[in-house]
Amino acid sequence: MMSISKVNEKPLVKICGLQDVEVLKSMKHLTVDFIGFVFARSKRQVIAAQAADLVKVLSEWQVRPLPRSVGVFVNPSVEEIEEILRQVSLDVIQLHGDESPALCRELRAKFGVDVFKVFSLNNDPNQAAEDIDLTLAPYEGVIDAVLIDTFDPVYGGGSGRTFSWERSIPYQIWARKMQIPLFIAGGLDPDNVHELVNGYAPDGVDISSGVETNGIKDMIKMTAFVERVKKA
């Protein structure tokens, strides 16, 4: 298992929702740290065989270190993860539902993967920091990164909408105490990511729809996004 707990000088970039091999090949010159493949119900969902072909492309990346492969799941069973991992080499399991600390611990121990736990922010902008700490505390020592996203009633996250970035601060404080990265997702795009990075200094950013045009990953938008994050 590779440690990613060290806070990076430049924010980590994760581009999620890849489905097309040729699109992924066109990205090989980008300084991307994580590439995400969605196994949960979504318009960007992939099956295991499709993801296996996509993951092979990561070994051809022209920028080092190579991007790490991330499988995105919502409330999976251990058996579901195991079946996917028989067919696809994943470095990270990203859990986007109500997964317990016990499941996170089991996945790390059984499969030797890193586990990213997503917390979707509810509609209460005044959620107390104490309540956030109570939510996060059981995950101490069993996850490798925290990712916060805007709540979506259908999928839980992946709404493509931003939240007030001030709300990330209690999560960031906890993640720093745990010495693990904090990723921010939700409504990011090449035009607003510079403000986020410079104003709130997350350890990583996660994007999908914000670098698409008509539902397809857009090379110009992806290049602009990565450059603006890494130069911020």
Rank of each mutant, 00 (worst) to 15 (best):
I93L: 10
S100N: 06
Q94I: 05
V72S: 10
P65I: 03
W61P: 09
V88E: 02
S89A: 15
V70I: 11
L66G: 06
H96L: 06
Q62K: 15
D98L: 02
Q62N: 15
I84G: 02
L66D: 13
R64S: 13
S100L: 02
V92I: 05
E82I: 00
E82V: 01
D98A: 04
P65D: 14
R86K: 10
I93P: 12
G97D: 08
S59M: 08
E99T: 01
R86H: 13
Q87E: 10
G97K: 14
R86S: 12
W61E: 05
L66P: 08
E83I: 03
S69T: 07
N75F: 12
P76Q: 09
V63Q: 12
P76Y: 05
I84Q: 00
R86M: 06
S59N: 10
D98E: 15
I93K: 03
S100I: 00
R64G: 08
I81Q: 01
L66W: 11
I81N: 04
L95V: 00
F73A: 00
D98F: 14
V63A: 09
R64D: 10
E60N: 13
Q62P: 06
S77K: 07
D98T: 07
W61Q: 07
P67T: 09
L66A: 12
L90T: 04
V78G: 01
